[in-house]
Design a protein around this nucleic acid. Structure first.
Lengths: 199, 199, 199, 199
DNA sequence: CATGAATGAGCTTTCATTCAT
DNA sequence: AATGAATGAAAGCTCATTCAT
């Protein structure tokens, strides 16, 4: 590891970390590049040595952070064999990860949905990979006879993701937290696994 | 009602309608007040006779449109007695309403989550009313013994809303639609009502 | 004449006039739009109501001022019948006009030759019209038997323009002026005329 | 001569050569120091070991290249005794030199006239030497009785230079060349000579 | 009430120059 | 001497908002 290389990587990392903080606090459009620079302890111009423009910071941030989360989710799922357990593990890991990365969660919650000029063009591959983790579990469950065959994985993956995402949004935004992560994850898993009807 | 008042109301309505279109197309931050003015066929300055500023347009838009949707939802639910049927009706109505108000849906999807400086301060009452329609159904179901008593309405309402919302987001954004509204609504209702486990 | 119309025209004129001064003083690239705005007594943003961008100010300035000069030159030439006299009149008028529009002259001298990205694309039609005033005189002279038939109007027009232009450049840039306009114009005319007259 | 010195000189030369190319292509203000560095195969910072700043590159470039041209012109003139022949030789050499140094010509054409803040301060001595080559010829011709006594060398030198310069500008900028150098040089010389010869 | 021309604060981005290595 | 990553001042342009008409 040459020092230069280390330094460069370091600045890149610092800028991304600063951007996470700043975007989470103000939202993308209310964040100034100069504020990110200040938070990263670099000069304004330095940002442009590592990123093409402000949009590129956000996109790179997504790519890199989503990859980290994807990896963590895959590891969490891999610990189980039973598809139902996998789904529970997914729910728990999702809520845990987003809670311990509250700022990143905020950005994903908000900017992921941004329909701004550039976001419409940007095809968020990592997000689709994430969603497909869910449908894979469901399909596996259907093959193993654990899940109903008439479930549409394409609908279910969105329903499950939406439910979890909204839950974590609630957590991120609310100051007081009534329920623990484990409780919420189990609760939500149970809706999907057992339904809400009384037995 | 004097004519002037009527005329004013008309401009107000035209501006809101124009804002829905423009915000949906570009997102809030990429929309220009002048574009809304043009779309509403009024002068730029006229906007400021009816709204305090750009933020106020968005907030008023939410308030008014959400009220319309709330009313429609209440009516849809009121047609049923069985809480399970109410939940199904809610799902169907939600997807129908958002689909037939695609532009409004887009705005709610995107801007509702905006964490921008002003959105953080704005307490979205109508949205909470909307969410509480769901928890009311659940509580009613629990009282009637239709739903499991151990369900947390505060969690469930978010899970259900998130699932439906994500589904409608998918609809709004995707060009090809594999599933009909009825199919999707039934499917999602079934997850929550019966769960996904094989019988 | 409506007042608004008048006001608009006025601002356009004031900005052009200010730009002539500022560009002449600093050159195009060292001139700031804000300085032009200040000189024109308008806000920075107002510039952009009348011009697309900084380049557009320069181009418009060329078009409009060159047109005025073209018109004056045509009038000056039209007063004579003899092509030799026309050429003398052209020389005198050229030097007079540029001297009494010293700032404009400076800009034409300098920026006309700019090879900057935008100037390469901009096809300076007015300048070619101006040059062709000279070749017209020469051709007329050749037809009337006043000028040698073997003169290439395409070369001569450039030689004459170059000679006059360099002379006026000298005037614009130097503080002390040894020769009067009339002297210099006669002198330069004589170089070309006695050389070009049929023996 | 130590090797280091030699090496330094080499870098100086490479930077000047690169600057000629880059300035000719983009003009001074649209040229980036980093582009010159790249073209010269040196680091950005190295430029500042050999030149004080960007302006200094242009000025040094002028000084050195003009000196080369001056030397060549003096040699070309020295081959003739007759002042009329000297003038023809000057015209031919001027056009030849500029044509075979098209990039340098472009810079001289354009930037010589730049009235930018720094160019106004820079007193272009070499250029005056160049101009005075012409007036020397004229004075010599007047002394030898070849040229009319009433010609003002101070005006004539500028007229001749302007005519030639404009002609070469035409050459530099136009892609198709109707006339050969010899033709154009003879043509232009003839305008001035036949006009200036004593009767 | 309505207009829309005018405003000017504020932002992103560039690039000449520096300096630690 | 040479490097090139880092700097940060500077400027063009946008657009929400105002106010004279």
């Amino acid at each position: 590891m040459k020092r230069k290389n280390k330094k460069s990587t370091d600045k890149h990392r610092r800028i991304i970390a600063a951007a996470v903080k700043v975007f989470a606090k103000n939202g993308f459009y209310n964040s100034k590049v100069s504020e990110i620079a200040r938070a990263a302890n670099v000069a304004d111009g330095t940002i442009y040595l590592y990123f093409q423009n402000k949009d590129d910071i956000l996109i790179t941030l997504f790519e890199e952070e989503m990859q980290r989360i994807l990896d963590a989710m895959r590891a969490a799922i891999a610990e189980h064999d039973d598809p139902a357990e996998k789904l529970k593990a997914f729910a728990k890991a999702h809520l845990s990860l987003l809670q311990s990365n509250a700022e990143l969660a905020e950005i994903i919650q908000v900017e992921l949905r941004q329909s701004s000029k550039f976001m419409k063009e940007y095809h968020n591959e990592k997000f689709y990979e994430y969603l497909n983790l869910i449908s894979s579990i469901i399909r596996e469950g259907q093959e193993k006879g654990v899940f109903r065959k008439d479930i549409e994985p394409g609908i279910a993956k969105r329903a499950i993701w939406g439910a979890l995402d909204e839950m974590s949004r609630y957590w991120v935004l609310s100051s007081t937290r009534k329920y623990s992560i484990a409780t919420a994850a189990d609760e939500i898993s149970s809706y999907f696994l057992r339904g809400m009807l009384a037995a």
